[in-house]
Every structure is written in C-alpha cells, then in structure tokens.
C-alpha cells in the first residue's frame, strides 16, 4: 500500500449515449465514461457543468443501473423548474454531449447482494433511483434475498420505472412492489393512496418471511424523515436504517 491514498474517482468525461423519458418530469440519461468504473448498487456520481467563464455547478445523482450492466451508466434526473442543473439536462443536454462526472461515490447507502437481507426499500419520487439499482442488481444476480420496495409517487404516471418494477414484481421470486400514490386512486389491488406511515411499513414488512436485516430510505429530506420514523415505529432498529437525503 502506498502512504498516500489514491485520489478516489477523479473527474472524467462521459458521453451521453441515450436519453429516455421515464415520466413527465423524469428523464434517464445514459453516460459512457471515458474510463469505465465498477460500482455498487446505491452509489452516486457527481456531475459538474462548466460555463465558458469557468463558473461551475455540481450536483450528485444516484446510479440507476445495476453494477452488472455493461456499457452506459443510467442517471434518472427529475426536472425542478427553477433549478440550475436539472433543467440543463432536460432542456439542453443531447446525445453526443460530453459531461464531466466523477464516481462511484458514497460507501454507506450501498447494497451488494452478498450482504443479504431481507430488505425494506422505501423511496419517494426520484428517491427510487438508487433502490432501482438495488432491485436490478438483485435480479441480475438471480438473488433470492426477500425484498419489499415501497415506492411513493404522486400519481400513477409519475411512477418512475413502472413497467420494469411491475415486471420484477411479477416474477414472484421474493421481490415485492408496494406502490402508494398521494394524489390519485390506486390502480393495483394491494396499493395505497396515502403518504407512508407506520401501518403501511408494518404491512409491507409482513410480506417478508422474517424481519428485515436492513432498510434503505431515499428521497427528499421531508420524505426520508417521515419514512425512517415510520420504520422505527414499526419496529426496525434505527441502526439498521440507512438513509440518502436529496437535500431540501
């Protein structure tokens, strides 16, 4: 080992190779890094934009693709109308553009499949992105670790990765999807129409064969606070809950 730690994940350029609209407000951008890197499900990258006069804006985005995916890395970016970076992606970025990013980053909100479970995943809006990487990772590994994903969205058409999540649920291989819509009626029999709460967490966990070993909660700060507290009230030890907060 060298005395000086190596620079972790230096900045590099990555080309946008594909753009796919996921919902009215969320679009996936697929990046091919000039120096490909291995990552774990749940990690993120930092992206930075540079103006001609040197001004830079940087933001973090979770990786949506599974570590097993060959080639491009998927970031799913929600457009905040008055934001600085997300509208750039939605309105300006195009296939062929080179963007600077560094990654993988974050060593806590990660789930390599061999860590085991069962798992409770709770995502609000774009907070589902790192959980999607975990779900895809699980599927790619043909894992049998029991997982329940509770995904809160405002309306049915804002359920990011909806078809893919329902397809994973339909495999009946131990991955369970629970959707809860906050502004529209439920479409699937077992889904909810309210904000996450203790009862919902308790019922979601009851779908697992045994109590969860780990819980991952991701979304806005307000969402994460409520969901993490609901998990604690439903009996999950605080030390087993990992959170990723997208800030405000």
């Amino acid at each position: 080992m060298s005395a000086v730690a190596a620079v972790q994940s230096p900045w590099q350029t990555a080309g946008i190779v594909r753009i796919e609209k996921r919902t009215p407000r969320v679009t996936s951008f697929f990046f091919r890094p000039s120096r490909p890197f291995a990552y774990r499900a749940g990690q993120h990258v930092d992206v930075r934009l540079t103006a001609p006069d040197g001004y830079q804006a940087r933001r973090s985005y979770s990786i949506a693709s599974a570590p097993e995916t060959v080639g491009a890395i998927e970031l799913a970016i929600e457009k905040l109308d008055d934001g600085e970076v997300s509208p750039f992606f939605h309105e300006v970025a195009a296939i062929g553009d080179e963007i600077e990013l560094r990654g993988p980053l974050g060593g806590h909100f990660v789930w390599p499949e061999d860590v085991g479970g069962p798992l409770v995943l709770v995502g609000g809006g774009s907070g589902v992105v790192p959980l999607m990487s975990m779900a895809r990772h699980r599927a790619a590994r043909n894992s049998t670790v029991p997982v329940v994903l509770v995904f809160s969205a405002r309306i049915w058409d804002e359920v990011i990765f909806r078809d893919e999540l329902i397809a994973l649920d339909d495999r009946r291989d131990g991955f369970d999807l629970v959707l809860t819509l906050t502004r529209e009626a439920a479409r699937r029999p077992a889904d909810y129409v309210r904000r996450v709460d203790v009862a919902m967490m308790a019922q979601a966990m009851a779908r697992l064969p045994e109590p969860p070993g780990l819980a991952f909660v991701c979304g806005s700060n307000a969402f994460v606070s409520v969901a993490a507290q609901a998990l604690i009230d439903a009996g999950v030890a605080a030390g087993n809950i990992r959170t990723e907060r997208y800030g405000v």
Partner: peptide, 11 residues
Amino acid sequence: MVTRGFSSGRR
C-alpha cells in the same frame, strides 16, 4: 472542460 450549452447558471 466547458459544457456545451451551459452558460448562465445561477451564479
């Protein structure tokens, strides 16, 4: 590296 199309920003 200058990002194509990123000029304004919220500086």
